[in-house]
């Protein structure tokens, strides 16, 4: 059982630094956003599990040959005042750290959920007062604002897409359709759940490069997935124009924007999770580039490789935890 904890620790380290950095620099995710999304999710899940598992297995090692037996012995010490002689301070420390980390992750997930929902409810309340239903479009609201804005507000049966009248003035009907299809793809594909999980992951472990890289990548990938959905209804030039106009926040004819200085990096705060995906500076550039210079989708072999690594990531840590003898 000892070696299992070292393998888990090695896996945790790989998944915390080199793997996400490599994936965030790769160019293929733009060619297969769905596969990349699956891989990011398995990296985050397997990373968290390995981190907790490594400490737990290492700490429980003196108590038994496998996790089930050792956990039972540990509970025996806690509840029935069994002998704790075999357990050193360092082991107790590792076990406590594992339990604390697990609690921290679950608690942050719950806390983020509550915060997002509170913010969404307030936002929806204000929308009731400030917007009016769009003509001929179910579950779509129009708000009076000059900036070209479109976003979706998830909420089960009460999910809505919101657009500004500024957007309607700037876009043609076909471009507007592109934007609305894009937003409803966010809702149908439940992107807000992904954003929630990765926002929580980031606020739980802000010092971990993975959590920031993963959140950025996921925000970018959901925009690409929604773009692909929109492309099934409108042609590419229409979508590109719509993205550029919404992304630029200004009519395209003002070429001043083209000559402006480059923008600084901007983070992706909770807001994206609240609204369930919205175009922003960070994601607009790769989205446009991907549409203007389309790359061929990944080959079956490459897709298969990426998906099987995702699958392995989900299978190996639990196996190492529960039944290490199966692997060795």
């Amino acid at each position: 059982m000892f070696w299992a904890s070292y393998l888990l620790a090695a896996l945790a380290i790989i998944l915390a630094w080199p793997a996400p950095i490599a994936l965030s620099r790769a160019e293929w995710p733009a060619r297969a956003p769905f596969t990349a999304m699956v891989l990011w999710q398995s990296i985050a899940l397997a990373g968290g599990l390995s981190m907790i598992g490594a400490m737990l297995v290492w700490g429980l090692e003196p108590l038994g040959d496998n996790l089930v037996e050792a956990s039972a012995a540990f509970l025996g010490i806690l509840l029935d005042d069994g002998s704790a002689e075999s357990l050193g301070v360092i082991h107790v420390f590792a076990i406590s750290a594992a339990i604390l980390l697990f609690g921290h992750l679950v608690f942050t997930l719950a806390l983020t959920f509550v915060r997002i929902h509170r913010q969404r409810r307030r936002h929806r309340d204000m929308l009731t007062l400030l917007s009016s239903p769009a003509a001929g479009q179910p579950a779509t609201l129009v708000i009076k604002h000059p900036a070209p804005v479109a976003y979706c507000l998830p909420g089960g049966a009460r999910s809505v897409t919101v657009m500004s009248d500024g957007l309607m003035d700037l876009l043609s009907q076909a471009e507007l359709d592109a934007v609305l299809t894009h937003e409803s793809a966010h809702l149908h594909q439940r992107h807000h759940l992904l954003l929630w999980a990765f926002a929580a992951w980031r606020s739980a472990l802000p010092w971990l490069p993975t959590s920031r890289l993963a959140q950025q990548a996921v925000s970018e990938l959901i925009e690409m997935l929604a773009d692909d959905e929109a492309l099934r209804h409108v042609d590419e030039p229409t979508l590109v124009r719509a993205i550029a106009i919404v992304g630029a926040g200004a009519p395209p004819s003002t070429s001043d924007a083209l000559d402006d200085a480059l923008a600084g990096e901007s983070g992706i705060p909770l807001t994206a999770a609240v609204t369930g995906g919205t175009a922003d500076v960070v994601s607009t550039v790769p989205r446009l580039r991907r549409l203007l210079t389309p790359l061929p989708p990944l080959s079956r072999l490459q897709q298969g490789l990426a998906l099987s690594s995702a699958g392995l990531l989900l299978v190996v840590p639990p196996l190492l935890l529960v039944a290490p003898e199966l692997l060795g």
């Binding site: 913010q119 936002h123 204000m126 929308l127 007062l129 400030l130 708000i143 009076k144 604002h145 900036a147 804005v149 976003y151 500004s164 550029a244 992304g247 630029a248 926040g249 200004a250 395209p252 001043d256 924007a257 083209l258 000559d259 402006d260 200085a261 480059l262 923008a263 600084g264 901007s266 992706i268 705060p269 807001t271 994206a272 609240v274 609204t275 919205t278 175009a279 922003d280 500076v281 960070v282 607009t284 550039v285 446009l288 580039r289 203007l292």
Partner: peptide
């Protein structure tokens, strides 16, 4: 109008300098 501006700020806060998107794009492609 103030309420609308405040609400839109929640949505747009991710993109403090939206006008620069195109510039950034042009600069990077």
């Amino acid at each position: 109008e103030d309420h609308t501006a405040e609400l839109m700020h929640e949505v747009l806060v991710t993109a403090p300098d939206r006008e620069a998107v195109l510039a950034r794009f042009i600069g990077s492609v």
